[in-house]
């Protein structure tokens, strides 16, 4: 589903991703861990088409298509979703209008008719229940005045609405209390299917107690320095990142 080969990316001539390769197949859950500043969010930004970063080398294939050639909106329409580490507040744009526009633009791309008002409302209701989000949140402007936890839940709600093929969750667990964490994890697990995949970016083991990854990768200084099964996460939890830093310091 996703094939990343030797990906390099920079910002202001500073190279941040320094040769990343990764394969994600349908049905899989990958965890990407690593200390702060190692490039995890940058990887997510480059995959979703944030123009602040420049890809200097490498390729990314998504469902057989050249992902790096596509506009951000087309990547989303192809089924890529990012739960932002820092969701953006957009005063004046209502959640309802935002979601209706997003869904109908995605449907149009796939040659489907727009949802009718009642179909849309039903979908909203279903998905709200699925992720246990306050009904009040969807009556407000996008993320405006939401608490940290509400913002993260709202990302998962959007994921549930858009039903992506590949979701990247960037530190969706950080700043969540245990209840919110459970809600987020439940949402992800309920949406899991044989034909979709998830990349969970985190630097704690905590979320991985609820979402069982098939693979764990350690990203350090723009490179994947270690890949293994879920036991790697436990090891990191125990030993911290220092041994990684020592081992891979140049």
């Amino acid at each position: 589903m996703l094939k990343i080969r030797n990906l390099h990316a920079k910002i202001d001539d500073k190279e941040i991703l320094r040769g990343i390769s990764l394969d994600v197949k349908p049905g899989e859950i990958h965890a990407i861990m690593g200390p702060n500043g190692s490039g995890k969010s940058t990887l997510a930004a480059v995959l979703t088409g944030n123009e602040a970063f420049e890809v200097s080398e490498g390729s990314v294939e998504f469902s057989g298509k050249d992902l790096l050639e596509m506009a951000p909106e087309d990547r989303a329409r192809e089924g890529l979703f990012l739960s932002f580490q820092y969701p953006v507040e957009i005063p004046g744009v209502s959640m309802t209008n935002f979601m209706r526009t997003a869904i109908n633009e995605q449907r149009k791309y796939r040659g489907l008719e727009p949802l009718s008002a009642s179909e849309f409302l039903k979908l909203m209701r279903d998905r709200k229940n699925l992720v246990e989000i306050d009904s009040d949140l969807t009556n407000r402007s996008v993320n405006e005045g939401f608490s940290g936890g509400e913002k993260k839940k709202n990302e998962i709600f959007q994921m549930a609405m858009l039903d992506p093929k590949l979701a990247i969750l960037d530190e969706t667990d950080s700043g969540l209390d245990i209840d919110a964490l459970r809600v987020v994890a439940n949402g992800v697990n309920k949406l899991r299917r044989a034909d979709n995949a998830t990349i969970v970016i985190t630097h704690y083991q905590r979320l991985l107690d609820y979402i069982q990854p098939d693979y764990v990768h350690v990203l350090y200084k723009g490179r994947i320095v270690k890949s293994a099964g879920k036991e790697l996460a436990l090891e990191l939890e125990e030993k911290g990142y220092d041994w990684i830093k020592k081992e891979f310091e140049e």
Partner: peptide, 16 residues
């Protein structure tokens, strides 16, 4: 970017 990352075209995002 946030709006576009949800599949909304640039033009439509600007209008929003």
């Amino acid at each position: 970017f946030y709006l576009r990352a949800r599949g909304i075209s640039k033009d439509e995002a600007l209008i929003l």
